[in-house]
Write a protein that binds this DNA or RNA. Structure first.
Lengths: 239, 239
DNA sequence: CAGTGGTCTAGACCACTGA
DNA sequence: CAGTGGTCTAGACCACTGA
């Protein structure tokens, strides 16, 4: 257990930020305060805070201090897209229609649902995304009420659950699984295509500081949507 | 033009590495040598080299020195998969069969091919990837002979072009476009499925320091392959 | 065992910028 | 103008590891 002091300080703040104990905008102690707290030189605390800055977790401003940044995921990293924003950029109007809404426990035997629920209830939201009123994707979503209790009272007539979550719940980790599938009979009927027609399927899990937030499965019209990820050496995103 | 000295040193090596003037495995000067060269203190060169290390461009080993690393893109970033490695991990045998090989110029009117060729010839390689001798994907690839002149003499009977490139040409930037498509008649025949059946299509461009290397389009059997990308705040991949 | 990087100190001067 | 971070110095001791 030999951990450099600068790494200990860095990891301490990282943990507090990811756990939400330090929220975006909160001010961190000054270098002077941290020097006294840890009884070390300024270079050591500077190294810790600079590492947090280059990781995008902290913003530092002269005279003002160091502040928790809203986590940013640069263009080179596959992001969680906000359909409403993406369609707006292409001049299309996004709408979402809810087809099912229920609060329930995890289905027995489905370990994934149990892990997501984490001992509490799940909110199940199914719906359809449209671009200019034409169906674009069928969405099935489960949300952990333990992580996002406010969602139970959410109103999804004018805003989709995905947009709501992106605006209200900062996530820290995500996993996308992308595959090609043939539309089921139900999906085909909702999307206005033939059963078995090719669709792009995106399954995504997101977490906040290790706690699961949501699982979503989206089935897109193949000819209307694809995913792009551009990436390069870390560091080239900055400067 | 106020650039800190540590940033100047860091950017200098970054440029030389991305340009290929420093190849993977090459040794960088020691901190002592850089101190003398720049007439600065050890902390300053240490900061520059440490930044290169945390960016994944350099590996540092005690007593041995600092070396150019093969660019690594951590698990949280969508990677360029090596099919041979991926299949090997699942206990399957990968094979590649070349179906077309020609050196040609870019097709008139196709700006993308002209940009890739960059004034020189293209090597076109079409083939099929198999897992345990069962077809998995159809691949169409173009390679810039300007960037990779050695590829013209490559032997792709026992190794696929993708594997060859990953082993010989370090890339610095990549773009993946992922979509669902229906198999064309030709693809369906090669893969042993019905025309129009759902397939996962991956199109990828790669660059090395701004110079285009290759374009590849792979059409996968839908039920045999999917792509996963997991990502989070930078920094959590390390340690 | 000797060279190299890893870490840290106790200072210094400066640039920026909010009060 | 005073507080804060940005950078840098000239040392130091140590851990690791290849010759």
């Amino acid at each position: 257990m030999k951990q450099p002091l600068h790494e200990k300080i860095r990891a301490d703040f990282e943990a507090r930020i990811l756990a939400g104990m330090l929220a975006p905008g909160d001010r961190l102690p000054t270098e002077q305060e941290l020097m006294q707290e840890h009884g070390c030189s300024r270079m050591t605390v500077n190294k810790a805070l600079s590492a947090l800055q280059s990781a995008g977790l902290v913003e530092r401003r002269k005279k003002a201090g160091s502040f928790v940044a809203r986590p940013r995921f640069h263009s080179m990293v596959l992001d969680i897209p906000d359909l409403a924003v993406q369609l707006g950029e292409r001049g299309k109007r996004h709408s979402y229609r809810l087809t099912r809404r229920q609060v329930r426990g995890p289905i027995a035997g489905r370990d994934e649902e149990a892990a997501l629920a984490n001992g509490a209830q799940l909110l199940e939201l199914d719906g359809i995304h449209c671009a200019d009123d034409r169906p674009l994707a069928v969405e099935h979503r489960l949300i952990a009420t333990r992580a996002v209790p406010a969602i139970v009272d959410g109103d999804f007539d004018s805003i989709s659950p995905g947009t709501w979550l992106l605006q209200h719940v900062p996530w820290t980790e995500a996993e996308n699984r992308i595959s090609a599938v043939g539309a089921t009979r139900r999906e085909a009927a909702l999307l206005g295509i033939a059963p078995g027609a090719p669709c792009l399927c995106v399954e995504r899990h997101t977490w906040r500081g290790g706690d699961p937030i949501t699982y979503v499965r989206q089935v897109f019209l193949a000819d209307a949507y694809d995913m792009v990820a551009r990436f390069g050496p870390s560091g080239s995103g900055g400067n």
